[in-house]
Amino acid sequence: MSQPVIESLGLTKTYRMGSQQVQALAGVDVQIKQGEFIAVMGPSGSGKSTFMNMLGCLDSPSSGEIRIQGENVTHLSAAELARIRNRYIGFVFQQFNLLPRTTALDNVLLPLLYRKDHDGTEDFASECLHRVGLAERMDHHPSQLSGGQQQRVAIARALVNQPAVVLADEPTGALDTETGLEIMQLFQQLNQEGKTIVLVTHEPEVAAFASRQLIFRDGRLQSDKQVQAESASEHLARYRAQKQQEGLA
């Protein structure tokens, strides 16, 4: 039961830039269990994104291993890795990465279209859009949606394949404070429903909503601790009340 959903073992990544070598990761061991909400913290350039990309099989390590539900995926082919991502991983990016000229529903549907066994139904995709509060916006194109709404579409897309883990790299980085809080509220709710979430952020205020914090420094795991998660809903309510007061004043 306690088998990790994803784990990294002695993970290193070295980038070669001409004669120069950059050690982006220098041996990281992390186990991620079912139902966790993890914030990956650290200063800029500490290796957070590099770590995430390797968890999500978007990039391959220089040494060490990534295991997804116990299976070592380090030496799989590009096509096999694509299938792993399609089955087990949901991505949320800072820049949303939605396809323009494609409706919200079709954007959400995209991962399923790359499944050999997909029967073409859109039911679950529209259910996911319902879940993120965009039932009314299914036929809208990204350009017709606000930043927060676009990120919700991206989250629905990350949910549609019922992944083992949702990986989000600075998902609030391009959003204002209130919208960011709304997104964090959504992540917290999804976690309470049982989703495993790993979220990269350099803002402690955002990391506070997670129940476990990994802090990276110079490509190493500096600390890994369980914390009492703050409630994004409460923060949001407080923020809105404050804003209203300022508006009245």
Binding site: L58, R85, Y114
Partner: peptide, 9 residues
Amino acid sequence: LRMAVGAEP
């Protein structure tokens, strides 16, 4: 993006 969500080469 397509590759990230599961497009094979």
